[in-house]
Simulated assay, not measured.
Amino acid sequence: MLLQGAALTLAVPGAGLQQALAEGVDVGRNSVFTKLVPAETIEKSAAQQYAQMLQQAAAQNALAGKDNPQLRRLRSMAQKIIPHALGWNPRAANWRWEVNLIGSKQINAFCMPGGKIAFYTGILDQLKLTDDEAAMVMGHEIAHALREHARERMGKNAATGIGATLLSQVLGLGELGQTVTNYGAQLLTLQFSRSDESEADLVGMELAARSGFDPRAGVSLWQKMAVANKGAPPQWLSTHPAGTTRIADIEANLPKVLPLYSRARAG
Rank of each mutant, 00 (worst) to 15 (best):
Q4H: 12
A6V: 12
L8E: 06
L10Q: 03
P13Q: 12
P13N: 03
G14T: 09
L17C: 12
Q19T: 10
V25D: 04
D26K: 14
R29H: 13
V32I: 14
V32S: 11
V37M: 10
A39Y: 13
T41A: 14
I42P: 00
A47T: 13
Q48W: 10
Y50N: 03
Q52D: 15
Q52E: 15
M53W: 01
Q56F: 08
A58M: 02
A58W: 10
A59P: 06
N61I: 00
A64N: 14
N68D: 14
P69K: 07
P69F: 08
L71H: 13
A78F: 07
A85Q: 03
L86Q: 15
L86G: 10
W88I: 03
N89T: 07
R91V: 08
R91Q: 13
R96V: 10
E98F: 02
V99C: 14
N100I: 02
N100G: 05
S104V: 07
S104P: 01
N108W: 06
A109S: 06
F110D: 00
F110L: 13
M112N: 01
P113E: 09
P113M: 09
G114P: 03
G114I: 00
I117K: 03
A118W: 03
Y120W: 12
G122S: 01
L129Q: 06
T130V: 12
D132K: 07
V137W: 04
H140L: 04
I142Q: 05
H144S: 11
A145C: 04
L146V: 10
R151N: 09
R153G: 00
M154P: 05
A158F: 04
T160H: 09
T160G: 08
G161N: 12
G163H: 04
Q169N: 15
V170F: 14
E175K: 14
Q186C: 00
Q186F: 04
T189S: 15
T189A: 03
Q191P: 03
D196S: 07
A200W: 00
D201R: 06
V203C: 04
L207Q: 02
R210G: 05
S211N: 02
P215R: 11
V219F: 12
S220K: 11
S220C: 02
W222S: 05
A226S: 15
A228Y: 01
G231T: 07
A232C: 05
A232I: 05
P234S: 12
P234F: 12
Q235C: 01
A242I: 09
A248M: 04
E251R: 12
A252D: 10
V257I: 08
Y261I: 00
Y261T: 02
R263H: 13
A264L: 04
R265V: 13
